[in-house]
Nucleic acid binder design. Structure first.
Lengths: 221, 221
DNA sequence: GCAAAAGTGTTTATCATACACCCATGT
DNA sequence: ACATGGGTGTATGATAAACACTTTTGC
C-alpha cells in the first residue's frame, strides 16, 4: 500500500441501439492477444487531464463520429485481476445511439458490429457482467425516466415506441394500456404527419417535448 | 493522451448510522491543507493489488474497527480538477454501521464525528455532492431492498423501524399503514420478548429472517 | 387514575390489468 | 373486397392512502 500506486483507469462504453425492432449492442472485434478473436466493449484509457465523463464521450466519438450523445455512468469495475494484462480499473458508461446517424466507415474500421441483446457473442474479461449490469439498469430506468427516446428518431410512432419498450424490457406490453399511459403524459405531442411506411392506414408521428416534461417530471411507462 | 497515465485512484466512504432516532453521517475532521479544518468523508488510495471493494472495506475498518460491514458502491467521481492537490478519481461507497459496535477510540483518534444528515458541516471538494448522491440512492433503495436493517440491532421494535424509515426518507409515515406492510412480509419474525425501555407498555421485538426473505425477495416499505 | 407509547380496521380513491372489435388505406 | 397494421373503452381486482380510538402498565 505504501509504494507508488500503479493502477490504470479506463472507461468502457455499453452502446445501445434499436435496430430492426430489437435492442442491440455495438461491440468491437478484438484483434490482439489476450483473448484475440473475442468481442469486447469499446473502451480506452482516461487522459491525465480529462474528465471521466469526457473520456467516455471521446471513446464513443472515436468509434462512431457522434457527439453529444446521451450517456450515463453505470458503475466501476475494480477487481484486482479483472484484466489479466495488468491492473486496470474501468468505469462503464451506457450510451444510446441511432444507427442511422453514426459513421459507418469508422465503425467498419474498428471492426465493430451490432448484436441483439439476447444473442451476444463471447466477451472478454468481465465485459459480460458489465453488459448485464447496464441492461438491468436500463430496464429499471426506462420506466421512470424518458431516456429511451435517445434510441428513436425525433419523430416516432406509438407502435415504434411500444416495440422499443418491449425490446428493452423483453416482455410484451398491452397496446391499449400502453397507449393510455402515453396519452396521460401530455408532453407527448401528436403531430399531423403520419408514417405511411409501415402500414396502409399510417401511424401518427409523435414527438417528446423536453420543455413540457421538465415542468412535470413524472414519467411512467 | 499518449504520455503515461498518472491518475490516482481512491475510495471515499459515506458512512451512515442511526443514532438518537436520526440518520447520521460519520465524518472526519481534516487536519491538513488544503481545506484544513473542513470535514470530509473518510477515504484512501486503492492498493496496487487490492480489489476496489476491498479498499473501501479496509478504509472503513481502519476508522471503525468494523469488518464485514454492508457496503454498496455508489458512483465514481472523475472530474479532472475535483481535487486541487492532484488528479484523483474517487469511487464512493456507502456503508451502514451501528454506533454501538464500532471502536470509539479509533474514531476519536481520527477526529471523527457524527452529524445528522440535515445538519452537515462544510465538506471538502465534491464530498457534499457525493453525500447527496448517496442519500438519494439510499432513499430509493431502502423502499425495495431490506438494507436498512444494517442500521438497527438484530432485535428491533416496530416503532424503531418506523422511525428509522422516517429518518431515512425524511417524511412521516402512517403507523397503521406501515405496520400492515410489515405484517404482510412474513420474514419479519415477532419475538416473545419486549423492549420495556421506551414505554410502560413495552414494544415487541422483531427480527429480520434473511433465509425466509431469500425465498420471496419481495420487499416494499 | 392518568400519562405515554403500543397496538389495531375500515373506507375510499387510485392505479394496473385483462380483454376484442372497428378503422383507414392500398392493392 | 380483403388484408394489414392502427386505433379505441370498459369492467374488475389490487394496492395505497386517509383516518381515531383502545390497550397496557408504571407511577
Amino acid at each position: 500500500m505504501e509504494q507508488k500506486q500503479q493502477i490504470k483507469l479506463a472507461v468502457d462504453c455499453i452502446i445501445f441501439g434499436f435496430n430492426n425492432n430489437r435492442l442491440e449492442l455495438l461491440l468491437v472485434h478484438r484483434g490482439f492477444e489476450p483473448e484475440k478473436g473475442k468481442w469486447s466493449l469499446i473502451g480506452g484509457y482516461v487522459g491525465n487531464e480529462e474528465d471521466l465523463d469526457d473520456a467516455a464521450n471521446r471513446v464513443l466519438y472515436n468509434l462512431s463520429g457522434l457527439e453529444n450523445i446521451y450517456m450515463e455512468q453505470v458503475r466501476t469495475w475494480g477487481e484486482a485481476n479483472r484484466d489479466p494484462s495488468g491492473r486496470v480499473v474501468s468505469t462503464t458508461y451506457s450510451a444510446m445511439i441511432l444507427k442511422s446517424e453514426y459513421n459507418a466507415e469508422l465503425v467498419n474500421k474498428y471492426d465493430a458490429q451490432w448484436f441483439p441483446i439476447d444473442e451476444l457473442p463471447e466477451l472478454i474479461f468481465d465485459h459480460r457482467a458489465m453488459v448485464d449490469s447496464a441492461v438491468r439498469r436500463l430496464r429499471r430506468r426506462v420506466r421512470n425516466y424518458p431516456i429511451a427516446f435517445n434510441l428513436l428518431p425525433e419523430k416516432f410512432t406509438l407502435p415504434q415506441l411500444q416495440m422499443l419498450y418491449e425490446g428493452i424490457l423483453s416482455e410484451p406490453l398491452d397496446k391499449r394500456n400502453f397507449r393510455r399511459k402515453v396519452a396521460q403524459m401530455n408532453y407527448f405531442i401528436k403531430l399531423e404527419e403520419k408514417d405511411m411506411s409501415e402500414s396502409r392506414k399510417g401511424a401518427y408521428y409523435y414527438r417528446f417535448d423536453e420543455a413540457l416534461y421538465a415542468k412535470e417530471l413524472n414519467f411512467n411507462l
